[in-house]
Simulated scan of single mutants.
Amino acid sequence: MKAFIKKYQWLFEFIGVAIILAVGIFAFVKQEVFLYIAGFALIIMGLLRIIPLLKTTKDMVLKIIYAVEILLNVVAGVLLVLEGGKDDYSENLMRYLVGAVLYLRGAIYFFATVIRKEATDHLQFIVHLAFITLGVVILATDYFTVKNLAFVVLILAIIAAFFIGYSGFRNYKNYRYERLAREETKKIIQKPAEKEEEGYVDPAPVKEDIIIPEEEEKEELNI
């Protein structure tokens, strides 16, 4: 299977380019798709987190806070999905809900680690600091809109398609040259084999006149 994927990697890359461009163009034309993406992302992350998070949290206060947070995430996701089905959807609803979710996640993290003394590490600190900062930026500015996201995604799709397409072009070129080299090698190997199959043919014997000694003596006597 690995050999097959490696051999036809260029094919998967070409298909990937087509899919990426199609998604980027579709998202740019149908901008409400971002409401569905954000909505389902919040719903899935909320539902898949709830059981492991509550089972591994010993602090009862944090359990209640986490449960409320997840419930709010799911509600926000449902609202975004429902909004995406409307013809006159609100462009600011996603900005408010996503910004609020990110800010709430960061605030709860700092409450849990500072007030409730929950264990943490440097990476979690940096990530949640970014969450709370990004949440404030999204809520305070109007850059996080469906139109801007569609434009950004389209640009990223074009850039990604270019690099993946270039990689696919190189892999396909190598594939064709390797195939050509194998064919030429087969031809070179087959030529000596064909000569051996023909076999060795002895040259035809050259006829020479044989002189018998008695005849030589008779000729001398006649002289």
Results as ranks from 00 to 15, higher is better:
133 T>M: 11
17 V>G: 00
152 V>Q: 08
44 I>G: 03
214 E>M: 08
97 L>A: 01
30 K>G: 03
177 Y>V: 15
76 A>P: 09
125 F>P: 00
188 I>D: 06
186 K>Q: 12
170 R>V: 11
66 Y>Q: 05
122 H>W: 14
125 F>Q: 12
23 V>N: 09
84 G>F: 09
122 H>T: 15
141 T>F: 14
112 A>D: 08
39 G>V: 06
138 I>V: 06
1 M>C: 11
162 F>W: 07
195 K>L: 11
174 N>Q: 07
52 P>F: 12
147 K>C: 01
190 Q>I: 07
198 E>K: 15
7 K>H: 10
124 Q>E: 13
197 E>K: 15
208 E>C: 07
41 A>M: 09
183 E>T: 01
146 V>K: 00
66 Y>V: 00
164 I>A: 06
179 R>C: 06
130 A>V: 15
118 E>W: 05
195 K>A: 09
182 R>V: 09
104 L>P: 01
138 I>A: 02
147 K>R: 13
188 I>H: 04
100 A>H: 03
17 V>H: 04
192 P>F: 01
85 G>Y: 15
135 G>M: 03
17 V>R: 00
95 R>G: 02
43 I>R: 03
65 I>V: 14
16 G>E: 02
153 V>I: 12
61 V>L: 13
30 K>D: 10
208 E>G: 07
7 K>A: 10
16 G>P: 01
39 G>A: 01
158 I>P: 00
115 I>A: 13
130 A>L: 15
21 L>Q: 06
164 I>E: 04
177 Y>L: 15
9 Q>H: 14
65 I>F: 10
176 R>D: 06
95 R>C: 03
131 F>R: 05
94 M>G: 00
89 Y>W: 10
71 L>T: 14
28 F>T: 06
35 L>N: 04
109 Y>M: 09
105 R>A: 15
134 L>A: 12
184 E>Q: 12
126 I>F: 14
190 Q>E: 13
202 D>A: 15
118 E>D: 10
138 I>T: 02
131 F>N: 06
145 T>L: 07
24 G>Q: 04
24 G>P: 00
78 V>S: 03
